[in-house]
Amino acid sequence: MSLPTARGGARPGLWRRHQRTLAPWLFLAPGLFMFAVYVILPIFQSIRIGFHDWDGIGTATWIGIGNYVELTGDDAFYTSLYNNVLWLVLYMLAVPAGLFMALFLNQTVAGIRLYKALFFFPFVVGLIFSWFYAPGFGPFYKLTGWLTGGGVAVLADERFVTYGIIAAGLWPQVAYCMILYLTGLNNVSPDQIEAGRLDGARGWRMLWHVVLPQLRPATFIAVVVTVIGALGSFDLVSIMTDGGPHGSSRVLSYYMYEQALSEYGFRMGYGAAIAAVLFLIMMLFITGFVWRMLRDERGAG
């Protein structure tokens, strides 16, 4: 007596046998390809270009660390770096401010959905701050004029210009953090809140000991996007001042753009070197973030 063989032969096909090994790569393939072409490879290319002197059109000449040596003596670079640090420090205010706003809005009254959407508005508007600061008639100019007797043209004053742009940048960033925290608050376990309330925790102590620990994922993402935003700040600088006056509001990403692409530049190698420095600073944070994320996950698993 013979046993009937399974249809399709005695051995299942290649796909059937390796389905679970091959499947993840098939799922990954399209996204990974795009990502590799547009993100991963350019990072290395950029680092490579940083060792060249290149105008973007002609042939690139290998100059080793020449660009980096030049950077060490470039005042504009230091100004940009200093401004980036300023951005990083002050931009962090968006995190507690966003938390505060989320706490304020986390209520249920009629129309609260519309309010939340309207508070989200600044996230999408940047240009209008130049109007806000406009010398002569801008509201801020008027306000300082009214307070001190002489109006301050923030964007034209080397002492204030970076602070002015950061303030404008904080506006949408706070809204962004607010959204993240609103979501986080949605996931805060009511049981723990009530348990805390049973134990007599109220207000600040409740926030600090019960709510904030549960908001850690939201805080994590908020800090991450704020750091990225601060180090990558470009739009407002470009829109509001073009790095001026006299280059005093430049940040690294803007300086890089200036060197590489704007009418001053087409020094691709030098721009790429600035980008590499920025990338290095960023890698410090990235490593920290990823390390924490994996540690948390392992802890949870």
Partner: peptide, 25 residues
């Protein structure tokens, strides 16, 4: 993990570093 790490790093990267190569591409 390495693949996932790649996505995360690429995600957090200051996108200006991509500017020159992406423009050329």
């Amino acid at each position: 993990l390495p693949v996932f790490f790649l996505f995360v790093v690429g995600n957090f990267v200051p996108f200006q570093i991509l500017m020159v190569p992406v423009r050329n591409l």
